[in-house]
């Protein structure tokens, strides 16, 4: 099976090269400054700034949801999410956005939220369980 060995090795090399290519498809979570510098599509993590204006008015545009996000470095920018306001948005602990900077706004086409587990403490859990 010499030929097969050679082929196997060849394929493993191809796979390895392709996997290393994955390195290009990956990136560290960006922040607003980095996103503005590259202008490319990035993923960034941050937290929702509750005391700045949050606009979602489905009667005006159901695909426009804007809010302020604070990234890891502490910068705050306005984010325009090109879809409706997700469920439980206010409860999110951290938010991962996919999108790009356009001027001062971050245009996000995808959002993932990390919500705290259902019960912060056992007391709350028991309280919930005993309510009929």
């Amino acid at each position: 099976m010499k030929k097969s060995y050679i082929l196997a090795i060849l394929l493993v090399v191809v796979a390895a090269v392709l996997l290393l290519q994955t390195g290009k498809a990956t990136s560290e979570y960006a922040n607003f400054d980095k996103a503005a510098a590259t202008g490319e599509k990035v993923q960034l993590v941050g937290t929702y700034v509750k005391d700045k204006p949050t606009i979602y008015d489905p009667l005006t545009d159901p695909n426009y949801f804007s809010f302020f996000l604070e990234d890891i470095t502490g910068n705050e920018r306005e984010v325009v999410l090109l879809m409706g306001k997700p469920q439980d948005f206010e409860m999110s602990e951290s938010i991962v956005l996919t999108g790009r900077m356009r001027d001062d706004q971050f245009i996000a086409s995808d959002i993932q939220m990390k919500c705290p587990s259902k019960y912060k403490d056992e007391e709350a859990m028991i309280k919930n369980l005993t309510e009929s």
Partner: peptide, 16 residues
């Protein structure tokens, strides 16, 4: 909405 790429326009996929 002006200034969006094609992909971004496509993401706006809900109607009221």
């Amino acid at each position: 909405m002006e200034g969006l790429t094609e992909d971004e326009q496509l993401a706006r996929s809900t109607v009221r």
